[in-house]
């Protein structure tokens, strides 16, 4: 853990330095030629077409794309919840066919992803029990992660007694207590109010820096993607391909007020925005290109 945070610290030393993800760090998550076709009998729908990208260890990468571009499908394939039609997903060199133990997922629907019949603490603890982590260590992990998300006081409450933002914090605590190699987040803040959202974004940055976990953060919000990510992958409209891969060369220490006013932030934001507009409008051309290119 400390080694990783030291790695993250290296960024602070050289703000603005572009880091080539493929070069410096070992690959943690590798998605190759991923394709997903929903077979609805006669009308097959190609949700995802030929996606290839990878995440280095300890990276925080945001996936952003126009709504309905198959982000959730992609995430489910990566999480091993859904078999892809073709292509592979590898986690630390291991092929993913079922949900791997080294991965944790935070869903958008916080209210539906928590066990309503369990206390906050039990929700966080349950996966650890399943992992057969001994009692003492388990308590430690639960306490630490609840502390990290600021919910120590609410350990014995039921999730539905908490506000939406707090419920999502419980889901995040559960994910980090699980000590995953990769943390997948599927539009986790889409359903919370703006103020809470800003707090949660900072929380994610903070956790990422402290724990050095590899994060793949899916969102449809361009500002959020640029603010959070070290890298932003822009997806095209359905059928989905990677449209652009943008390195976010903002300082590691970010702040809702100053970072968002930063000139570089505005530039990056504009670039992502342009890419997404292009993705939305240029679907036809893109498809033509795809069919001609091979």
């Amino acid at each position: 853990m400390s080694a990783n945070s030291a790695g993250a610290g290296a960024y602070t030393g050289s703000p603005g330095a572009t880091t080539n993800h493929q070069g410096e760090r070992p690959t943690m998550l590798k998605v190759t030629g991923l394709q997903k076709i929903y077979n609805g009998g006669a009308s097959a729908v190609e949700a995802v077409r030929d996606l290839t990208f990878d995440l280095g260890e300890g990276e925080l990468v945001c996936l952003v794309g126009p709504s309905g571009c198959g982000k959730t499908t992609l995430l489910k394939c990566i999480a091993g919840l859904m078999p892809p039609t073709s292509g592979t997903v590898e986690l630390a060199g291991q092929s993913v066919t079922a949900p791997p133990p080294g991965m944790a997922v935070v869903f958008q629907e916080y209210g539906r992803s928590l066990f309503a019949w369990m206390s906050v603490r039990a929700n966080v603890e349950l996966p650890l029990k399943e992992k057969r982590i001994p009692r003492g260590r388990r308590d430690e992990l639960v306490d630490e992660s609840l502390e990290a998300v600021g919910l120590t006081r609410f350990a014995d409450a039921y999730p539905w007694q908490l506000s939406g933002g707090m419920q999502q914090r419980v889901a995040i605590a559960r994910a980090i207590a699980y000590e995953p190699q990769v943390l997948l987040m599927d539009e986790p803040f889409a359903a919370v109010d703006a103020q809470t959202r800003a707090d949660l974004e900072d929380l994610i940055r903070q956790i990422w820096q402290r724990m050095g976990v590899t994060v793949l953060f899916v969102t449809h919000d361009i500002d959020e993607a640029v603010y959070l990510g070290e890298r932003v992958l822009v997806l095209s409209s359905s059928p989905t391909v990677v449209q652009d891969d943008i390195t976010v060369d903002l300082p590691t220490e970010r702040d809702q007020l100053t970072t968002r006013q930063d000139e570089r932030f505005t530039e990056l934001r504009a670039r992502v925005y342009a890419q997404i507009q292009q993705a939305k409008n240029g679907t036809g051309a893109d498809q033509d290109a795809a069919s001609v290119a091979p």
Binding site: L81, F107, F115, L126
Partner: peptide
């Protein structure tokens, strides 16, 4: 049983009898 909750359980390796006990029976209670 809520599909999101079922996915969550799968992600965290909750399967077999534990799944039945903590997820299926409780949410059907």
């Amino acid at each position: 049983v809520d599909p999101v909750l079922a996915d969550t359980a799968r992600c965290y390796g909750i399967t077999g009898t534990t799944r039945l006990r903590v997820l299926v029976l409780r949410s059907a209670s």
